[in-house]
Amino acid sequence: MNAPFFKYGLFGDDFSLVVAFLIGIGFGFFLERAGFGSAKKLTAQFYFIDMSVFKVMFTAIVTAMLGLYYLGVLGLINLSLVYLTPTYLIPQILGGLILGIGFVIGGYCPGTSCVAVSTGKIDALVFLIGVVAGIFAFGEVFPLIKNFYYSSDMGQLTLPQLLNIPYGLIVFLVVLMAVGGFIGAEFVEKKMKK
C-alpha cells in the first residue's frame, strides 16, 4: 500500500473531486448523527450542560491520530506527504478567539452550519450568509492586515518537533489527556443535571 494514494498518482484531479464529494458525505453524515445540526446542542457545550462538542471532536482527533500513527509505523503511509498547514502563531491565536466568540454568538461553525441548513434551520442559513460576509470583509481588508497575517511564521511544525518529544509519546499523552477529558465531561454533565 502506497498512501496517500492521490500523492502517488493513483488517480487524477478530476477523480479527486468525486472522492471529495464522497468524503464530504461521510463528514456531513456523522456531524448530523452527533446532533451538530442543532445550535442549541452545540452551544450547550459552553454552559457545561451537554459536552458533546468536546467528546465528538476529541474522539475524532484521537481516532484519526492513532490511525495515522499506526499506519505510519507499519510503513503503509508516507506521513511527510500529508499536508500540514504552516503555523503562524499570533494570527492563529487571534483567529481562534474571534472564531470562538462567533461560535457562541452564531451557534454554529462553518461545517456544522451546512448540516443545519440541510435539515431546515433558517438561522443556519443566515449564519452561512454571515460567514460569506465575514470572508468578503477579510478579503477586502487583506492588503491592510497582510503583514500581521504573515507574522510569527514558524513554518510547518508539529508538537513532537516543537517539544522534542518522540511522536509515539505525544500520541500517548494526547490519548491520556482525551480520556481524562472524557471522564471530566461525564462528571460535569451529571453534576449539571442535578
Binding site: I98, G102, P110, S113, L128, V132
Partner: peptide, 10 residues
C-alpha cells in the same frame, strides 16, 4: 456570529 467566524477562520 457567522461574520466573526468567517473573518476569524481566514
Amino acid at each position: 456570529g457567522g461574520a466573526l467566524m468567517g473573518f476569524g477562520a481566514k
